[in-house]
Simulated assay, not measured.
Amino acid sequence: MAEEIKTKTAIPRYQQIAVEVAARIANGEYIEGEKIYARSSLASQYSVSPETARRAICILSDLGIVTSEKGNGIIIRSQKKASEYIQQNGKRQTIDTIKENLLKSVSRQKQEMETLNDCLKDLIEASVHFRSMNPFMPFEIRITPDCVYLNKTVTEIQFWQRTGATVIGVSRNNTLMKSPGPYVALSENDTIYFVTQDDTLDRVKEFLYPSK
């Protein structure tokens, strides 16, 4: 079974916190100039480590959304920049979703191709085994107007001598003639049944319908 492709990319927790705080600023829950919780309070509110809270604050500070001064907490600076950050993050999430769906589709197609290849392999092996168990299983070929020996008898065209195949039946007008003998002629719309020594159909096809 093919190894499953990992398509889900988790967003770091500090980025999630930065987005959530920016969303609250963009929605007017916090106003510009307002002082909100300190880093330790932010870590406690979101149940994360102080380092995770610090990284979230750094993102917002770098974008000019807030300022953070030691001992002075976090101060809101720009609702507009918070809104812009939320919009950019939404576009990024859309791209990530498209990428994830694309990778999932590629994974499914890969698995389907592997399943198809396994089925074809099983079919070939089963066919070879079946023919080995039934050495006299006949081949068949349809006689069309393109046949170069149309209306010629098996003897006239030296069918056995030139192909190594023996005609064992001819189906004509919904009637099957078994062991038709060497003097049966190849008529249009006939179906010829034959057995070969090497179990190959190619030689007979090339004989009746030579490549140009």
Rank of each mutant, 00 (worst) to 15 (best):
residue 95 I to W: 03
residue 136 F to G: 01
residue 126 A to R: 07
residue 112 E to C: 01
residue 93 Q to S: 10
residue 100 E to I: 01
residue 72 N to Y: 09
residue 110 K to L: 11
residue 41 S to A: 15
residue 83 S to L: 14
residue 45 Q to G: 09
residue 160 W to E: 15
residue 114 E to R: 04
residue 109 Q to C: 01
residue 156 E to C: 06
residue 109 Q to I: 12
residue 100 E to H: 03
residue 132 S to A: 15
residue 58 C to Y: 14
residue 54 R to M: 01
residue 63 L to A: 11
residue 64 G to T: 06
residue 42 L to M: 13
residue 44 S to N: 14
residue 136 F to C: 05
residue 150 L to V: 04
residue 91 K to E: 13
residue 147 C to F: 00
residue 164 G to F: 05
residue 105 S to H: 03
residue 104 K to Q: 09
residue 94 T to L: 15
residue 140 E to W: 04
residue 74 I to H: 01
residue 51 E to V: 14
residue 62 D to L: 11
residue 51 E to D: 12
residue 73 G to Y: 10
residue 65 I to L: 12
residue 130 F to H: 08
residue 114 E to I: 07
residue 133 M to D: 08
residue 90 G to T: 10
residue 102 L to M: 08
residue 161 Q to C: 05
residue 81 K to V: 02
residue 134 N to H: 12
residue 62 D to N: 15
residue 80 K to T: 10
residue 84 E to N: 09
residue 156 E to Y: 06
residue 164 G to L: 08
residue 162 R to V: 05
residue 106 V to K: 07
residue 95 I to R: 09
residue 111 Q to C: 00
residue 109 Q to R: 11
residue 98 I to K: 07
residue 81 K to H: 10
residue 69 E to T: 11
residue 100 E to F: 04
residue 74 I to D: 03
residue 77 R to E: 12
residue 50 P to A: 06
residue 66 V to W: 00
residue 62 D to V: 07
residue 130 F to R: 10
residue 158 Q to M: 13
residue 147 C to I: 03
residue 111 Q to V: 12
residue 94 T to C: 06
residue 125 E to H: 07
residue 93 Q to N: 12
residue 123 L to H: 04
residue 113 M to P: 03
residue 57 I to A: 10
residue 59 I to Q: 04
residue 118 D to N: 14
residue 160 W to R: 13
residue 53 A to P: 01
residue 92 R to V: 02
residue 141 I to N: 00
residue 93 Q to D: 07
residue 50 P to N: 12
residue 121 K to R: 12
residue 110 K to I: 09
residue 81 K to A: 06
residue 63 L to R: 13
residue 149 Y to P: 02
residue 64 G to I: 08
residue 116 L to V: 05
residue 110 K to S: 11
residue 88 Q to F: 09
residue 63 L to D: 08
residue 64 G to D: 01
residue 105 S to M: 07
residue 158 Q to S: 15
residue 43 A to L: 02
residue 116 L to A: 10
residue 87 Q to L: 15
residue 115 T to G: 03
residue 81 K to G: 00
residue 101 N to M: 12
residue 132 S to Q: 14
residue 110 K to F: 03
residue 156 E to I: 06
residue 69 E to D: 11
residue 124 I to G: 00
residue 115 T to V: 08
residue 48 V to F: 01
residue 155 T to K: 15
residue 157 I to R: 05
residue 163 T to C: 05
residue 38 A to H: 06
residue 145 P to F: 08
residue 39 R to L: 15
residue 126 A to P: 06
residue 124 I to F: 05
residue 136 F to Y: 11
residue 115 T to K: 14
residue 148 V to K: 14
residue 94 T to H: 05
residue 41 S to G: 15
residue 123 L to I: 08
residue 71 G to R: 01
residue 74 I to C: 09
residue 157 I to C: 13
residue 127 S to E: 12
residue 138 P to F: 02
